[in-house]
């Protein structure tokens, strides 16, 4: 817990590239406020989490989603995640898990990674993996998974 407290209250700097990445405030191991105005739509989040091309979630995570035989085993099962973590904790883990575990394979979904040498493909350059609204939908859905 002391480790988490170290992160304290930090303002994440926006890379300023693309209209879709805004700034957010990290409190402990959570982002308390939604990335964009208003609550996400859990139904949309439900559909998006199983979208193997867009969100990619189920490539690594299993959970109470369709097509269980196509779920990955690289990351924790998301069943009951809404009981284990708060909304704000889930939000930070989707936005930037590397802040909590620098070596994680979980991509930072709300970050532009155009650094020299990264070779980000042209179509993906200057864009986060998902928009703030997409992430809010996913967060809204995951908080409903109570077990």
């Amino acid at each position: 817990m002391a480790c988490l407290a170290l992160t304290g209250l930090l303002l994440a700097a926006s890379p300023g590239a693309g209209e879709e990445v805004g700034s957010y405030v990290v409190t402990g191991d959570a982002i308390m406020e939604p990335l964009v105005g208003g609550k996400g739509d859990p139904a949309r989040g439900d559909a998006l989490i199983s979208d193997r091309q867009r969100s990619l979630c189920t490539l690594c995570h299993s959970g109470p989603f369709p097509d269980a035989h196509l779920h990955g085993t690289l990351a924790p099962d998301l069943t009951g995640v809404g009981a284990r973590l708060s909304e704000g904790q889930i939000r930070l883990r989707v936005v930037d898990m590397k802040r909590l575990a620098p070596n994680t394979i979980m991509p930072s979904y709300y970050r532009v990674a155009d650094e020299e040498g990264r070779r980000v493909a042209t179509v993906w350059r200057s864009k986060p993996i998902l928009t703030g609204a997409d992430i809010e939908d996913i967060v809204a859905y995951l908080t409903t998974l109570k077990g």
């Binding site: 991509p107 990674a113 040498g117 990264r118 070779r119 980000v120 493909a121 993906w124 350059r125 864009k127």
Partner: peptide, 15 residues
């Protein structure tokens, strides 16, 4: 590398 920020080793060594 890439937008997903993964190396070959991320999957083929570690997982």
């Amino acid at each position: 590398i890439g937008q997903l920020d993964l190396s070959c080793a991320s999957c083929h060594h570690t997982n």
